[in-house]
Structure formats: C-alpha cells, structure tokens
C-alpha cells in the first residue's frame, strides 16, 4: 500500500475542513472497502481523514414517525435496532444479508452507501477499465459478465452497485444529508448515484469534500410489511446476483401502497418506479405481479451471457410480492 498520512477528526467541522483543504484527501469510515482498494492500488489518497468515530452514531426517531440514522452507525447496530426491525424490517434484512458479521461490525452506513463496484476487471489493474482509468476501455464487455447489469448500464461501463442496504433504503425513499464547508444539503438517495453514461468514473453527485452525516427514512406505512430477498451463488457471504426490496400495504386484496427496488442488476440501487405504478391500486394477484415485473424489465438488456438475470429478476420480484401478500393479509 502506498504511504499516506492519517488524521482522526474529532468533529464534523474539522473533518470537512481537513478534506476540503487537502487536495488528495479522503474520508475513512470502517475501511472495509477503501483499505482494500488502497491495498490493490486502485485508490491512492495521500491523506485519510477518519470519520468513523464522529458522534454521528445514533438512530433517532423523527417527529413525523420517520427515522434518522447517523452516518457512523455500524451496519450491525443498524440491523439490530428495535425500531428498524419493527418499522422497516427490509432494512435490517438487507444489512444482514450483506457481507459477514465481522465486516458488518466494522462498516459504517456512510461507507456502505459509497462502496464501489465489485466488477472483477475494476479490481484487476492489468485490465482496461473506464471507471478506474477513463478512456482505457471496458474489459467486462466481451469478458465475464455474470455480475454485470441489465438496466441502466452504458457501452462504457456495465458494472453494478454492490450494496444491499442501499436497495432497501431507496425503496423507502431515503434522503441523504451531506455536509461541507459550503453548508448542508439533502439529496434523495435515488439521486445520489449516477448512471455511468460516458463518465463511469463519476459515480455519485457528491463533491470530494462532502461528508455524509445522516440518512433519513420518511414514515412509510407499507414498510411494516416489507422484505429483502437476495439471490446469490452461495447461501451467505456473497454479493447479489439479483436482489429485491419490497413493501406492500393491502386493503383486502387491493394494494394500497407498493415499494419496490432492485439490486445486483444496475449501476445504482434501482427504484422500480414502473413496477410500483402497476402495483398501486391493483389487486394482489399473480397476474398483477407478472405485469409489474414485465413493466420494469421492459428495457432490460442482457450483457454478454447474463440474459438469465432478466428471468431471475422477474421471478424474484414475483416471489417476493407473493410472500408479502400472504404475510400482509394475515389478520
């Protein structure tokens, strides 16, 4: 690993100033992604500003019934929080389906949102990669595409966003709070990550010196009946091939509120707006679920040999909605 200097920030203002004033400085959370990328010589900051011990580690109830999650809350603490488990079970399940217990004890919420793709060629510095080295090409095209996306990808980059937590948060309409020397701004999580288009190296709308301080969840009545379903190559400790975060509220057999997001298949956590549109107000039947999945996957395209992911996504959406219908209509 290349040499760098390390500063531990005592408060938000110091952290933000330190990164703002130092050209090649980066925030450090739990380090589970950044340290790995530095060791692989993919990231090489000169200065790490450790924000993992900032006093942003609380989960608080908001007056409107929503939840404010501090950016340094550990992934494990988030998953275990009683309010998260009862009001937003999909969030707890998404976290628990990601990484390992050791990594979840280390990883922060802020770091989880900004973790980078697991595209094999992004990690292999001998391969061309537009994300790692803009303009060098994309080794995934014509290569191994099992982990590549089917929605939102471009000819420059077909990589997927690997976070499970983000998929649950985006389904619930989470808002990210960001702090810099220029003040505070609030960004809906759907707008935080960018699609690759011609600039896959630009992954989010954040500036280099913007610190994530919190994630807020609005009250979502449907979320009490929510679920995260992840399909992967082994039963645990593997990234998603396809994942679905869903929430359904039912009145009899009518869907009054639907939330759906997809993981493992797009460059960003994918809010399934088209599917939600079909579901809302419709009857909770297999036919409706099929139509919803078809509407969302209408523009899906296989990359190389990953056509199986389109069908796998369709089936996982339908299975998750079916499960929630059984649970949601229990008295």
């Amino acid at each position: 690993m290349r040499a760098f200097s390390y500063v531990s920030a005592p408060d938000v203002a110091t952290a933000v100033r330190a990164v703002s004033e130092t050209p090649n400085a980066k925030f450090l959370g739990g380090g589970t992604n950044l340290v790995d990328l530095m060791r692989e010589n993919i990231e090489h900051p000169d200065v790490l500003v450790d924000v993992s011990r900032l006093p942003l580690n609380g989960v608080e109830e908001l007056p409107d019934g929503g939840l404010r999650i501090g950016a340094t809350v550990r992934n494990s603490a988030l998953a275990a929080h009683p309010l998260v488990r009862t009001r937003y079970p999909v969030v707890s399940q998404a976290v628990l389906n990601g990484a390992s217990a050791q990594l979840r004890n280390m990883a922060t919420v802020g770091g989880n949102l900004l973790q980078r793709t697991r595209c094999l060629y992004f990690y292999d510095t001998a391969s061309p990669c537009n994300k790692r080295e803009p303009g060098s090409g994309c080794a995934a095209l014509g290569g191994f595409t099992r982990d590549a996306g089917i929605l939102g990808v471009s000819e420059r980059c077909v990589a997927t966003h690997p976070s499970d937590l983000c998929v649950a948060l985006v389904a619930l309409g989470a808002v990210v709070e960001v702090e810099s020397t220029r003040g505070t701004r609030r960004i809906p999580l759907t707008d935080l990550h960018r699609l690759p288009a011609d600039t896959p190296q630009r992954e989010t709308v954040l500036e280099r010196d913007e610190l994530i301080t919190a994630v807020e969840l609005p009250p979502v009545p449907a979320a009490a009946n929510s679920r995260y379903r992840k399909v992967r190559d082994r039963a645990s400790y593997a990234f998603a091939l396809v994942s679905v975060a869903a929430a359904l509220r039912l009145d009899g057999d009518t869907i009054t509120e639907a939330r759906l997001a997809l993981g493992g298949i797009a460059p960003k956590p994918w809010r399934a707006n088209e599917a939600e549109h079909v579901l809302t107000g419709a009857r909770a039947t297999e036919e409706t679920f099929d139509r919803a999945a078809a509407a969302e996957l209408d523009r899906a395209q296989a990359v190389g040999d990953n056509a199986f992911k389109i069908e796998l996504t369709r089936r996982t959406i339908v299975a998750t909605l079916r499960e929630l219908t059984h649970e949601g209509s229990r008295p």
Partner: peptide, 10 residues
C-alpha cells in the same frame, strides 16, 4: 472484526 481490513491506527 477482520484484522486485515483494519488499520492499526484506527
């Protein structure tokens, strides 16, 4: 925790 991804300073 995984000691390999933990910087000793942290």
């Amino acid at each position: 925790i995984n000691a390999c991804l933990a910087l000793a300073v942290q």
